[in-house]
Design a protein around this nucleic acid. Structure first.
Lengths: 227, 227
DNA sequence: TAAACACTAAACTATACAGTCTAGTGTTGC
DNA sequence: GCAACACTAGACTGTATAGTTTAGTGTTTA
């Protein structure tokens, strides 16, 4: 992991609490906890918060209902623990593979690769699409979870991007790298939302390379070397 | 309404069905139907689909539960009717005030005004934010409603934008106006999602004018007249 | 006047759910 | 052996829900 993402990683601990039982009652097996979170993931991602039943979570996890309640305080606590785990997983899957050496080439090629990485991490991944549905759908009832998501995924991505643009300031000539970063990330995430989450592929079709090419065209001045 | 939006308006009829009762039983009062949709709007927007109860919808609407079921087939039918009504309302509120004469100035000023219009129609409007939460949160369980939204709101916006860029091709010099339109709209919508829907204002603060200025910088070549 | 019907309040059915409790099994540590 | 305890299956409580039904009111139409 690059040094620029290390600072962002610290942010993961912000806004995270324990949603398991307060008394750390001695020997609760971590395997069961993982199984419960696995069942919760399947059910919450498929049905949403309100329509998920704790009986079904227990059954899917292959665990008794009493065990669920011995590991987690209640439905809300299990849900919060799950979302925080998923946010961490997503953070790692996006920023784990980013290595500094990949950022040394000419900006055109590097930006193209970054854009492809962002889209790869979301397009066609129905689990991640459902995760975004859940975060957005419940952001009114669980504002703190939405903030955790923003802190760890959105803000980290924009921070990383801003840093990259800033490091290449002399060749890219951008007056406001932070705003440009948000435009870049925003255009990609919006593409993902419309095409995948909202089933817009057939209604407003667009090849991803077309979007990316245009994005590079707008970000890189003509003086940049061709790809 | 401009002529360019007139064609898009026809799209509103696509993918719309009747979710009221099939038999058009004679005299169901439209006032009651409106009241029911009003109650449904309050409840569904506040609680989401699964957590909304039909008893509460009836109470909020000031109507008996039996009347709800005489106007709408079931909970799902009421929900679909509501979403389609809201999509139409949103379509009109965005594209109603757009008049062709406002599109004649220099591109820099016009694009700034369009961007401000897009943000005005969403920022600070908690009803619209909740509407997006509902559409996105339920897009897995109600894909057809998500498509209705894409057809009428997202696609219309991009179509309108593409048309504008295309009409000003000689001064803007964009190789792919459609892709540029999606970048423009996408950056704005993503900003709205992060700041408002996901409560990211304090975590990644950014003045809207900063984003818009950067957007204009990237879309308009330097040869454009200054604002 | 009488039938038709939109509407109401309230009871009703059947189901589902969150969370608890009981009785009991297997394992671990003393 | 025994106490502690993580875990299980399943019963149980109280509440909430979607949708129906019943009995009755007021209004419209013929």
């Amino acid at each position: 992991m690059s040094s620029s993402t290390a600072t962002a990683f610290c942010a993961i601990l912000q806004g995270m609490e324990q949603h398991t039982l307060s008394k750390p009652s001695r020997q609760l097996s971590p395997e069961k906890a993982e199984a419960i979170l696995g069942g919760a993931m399947q059910e919450f991602l498929a049905c949403g918060y309100a329509a998920t039943s704790m009986d079904r979570v227990a059954a899917t996890a292959g665990v008794s209902k009493a065990t669920v309640y011995s590991h987690f305080l209640d439905k809300e606590g299990l849900f919060k623990a799950l979302i925080e785990q998923l946010v961490q997983k997503k953070f790692r899957s996006i920023f784990g593979p980013v290595e500094d050496q990949h950022l040394q080439g000419n900006p055109r090629a590097t930006l193209t690769q970054i854009a492809n990485n962002v889209l790869d991490s979301g397009m066609g991944d129905s689990q991640y699409v459902n995760f975004m549905r859940l975060i957005m759908g419940e952001s009114g009832r669980f504002p703190e979870l939405a903030r955790t998501f923003v802190r760890n995924v959105e803000a980290s991505a924009c921070q990383f991007f801003k840093q990259y643009l800033h490091n290449n300031a002399e060749v890219l000539q951008l007056p406001d790298p932070e705003a440009s970063g948000r435009i870049f990330i925003g255009a990609l995430v919006h593409y993902l939302i419309v095409q995948e989450m909202l089933h817009g592929k057939d209604i407003m079709p667009m090849e991803r390379d077309r979007l990316i090419d245009s994005l590079i065209f707008h970000i890189c001045p003509r003086s940049c070397s061709a790809k």
